[in-house]
Amino acid sequence: MAGSFEASDGLSSRERRALETLLTRLGDDEFVLAERYTEWQVRAPSLESDLALANNAQDELGHARLWYDVLADVGLDERALAYERDPADFRHGTLVELPFETGDWADAVLRSYLYDVAEDLRLEALTASSHPKIADRVGKIRSEEKYHREHARSWLERLAEDDDGRGRLQDALDRLFPHALTLFEPAVPPRLGAKASENDVAKAAAVDADVVDLGLRTATLEELRSEWLSIVVPFLESLDLAVAVDRDAENPEADLDALLPDARGRDGAHTEAWFDLHDELTRTYRELGRTETTTIMEAPDG
């Protein structure tokens, strides 16, 4: 199967659906998280942390561009993907769409940690992707994510040394953990372009199986989740934080599934906050009646 993505014009509908589903979940995660990170600009605890969070936001936005740009090959541009898509057709996990409560820096650094570990694992599973553009873009993204992870870990360690800080981290963890699990949920194929009929929850698992079967990603979501847990749980526990999973339980998978929130994002169900955010970020585009998006940077190579 590998190699069939070398040319985009000969894709079967199965290949195209797998590609679109994978890239929207990747691009949407980055796009929406970046949007949330920018909320910390001019609001972070110090000028230094303000600069750092702004960096993260711009990195994630850059990654969103890289993933969305691969979809240009199948006729989907930024206008269609970011500015004119029905918000219900975004496929990011709910972890990235939740708003930050004012001043909740514990949420910012914990969310970044939970996300960046997951991000690193999924990028690893894309390094040998059968789609050459996807494989090529992984390297650049990974080098930046490494810095994000170190930044988040360092902040977590600092905050956890303080009683008040640790208490706030625990609150954030209790709230965010179920949403972090949505990162490993299969995505319902988004209704992009002309194919407006496909919004079938039952297809999600099958399409993700296609993603792996076609070699677009080389690990299953279950494998990624289990690897993620083996990293984040011991680390968080080492900071005296309690994680709501019992890895020695008889049926840990079922326990985890029970923790998942009602709206998972990947399934097209979102929290109210996402619709408000989408409304705000498309406001200028709509109010000025724009029909195209301005690019000022060159399209990424490869």
């Binding site: 796009f31 949007e35 920018t38 600009q41 711009q58 936005l61 850059g62 969103a64 561009r65 969305y68 930024e78 970011a82 500015y83 705000e280 970020l281 406001r283 200028t284 585009y285 000025l288 724009r290 998006t293 301005t294 690019t295 000022i296 940077m297």
Partner: peptide, 12 residues
């Protein structure tokens, strides 16, 4: 940053 009408404008 949020209200910018394109990703490149947002980045800038």
């Amino acid at each position: 940053i949020r209200q910018a009408p394109s990703i490149d404008r947002k980045l800038a």
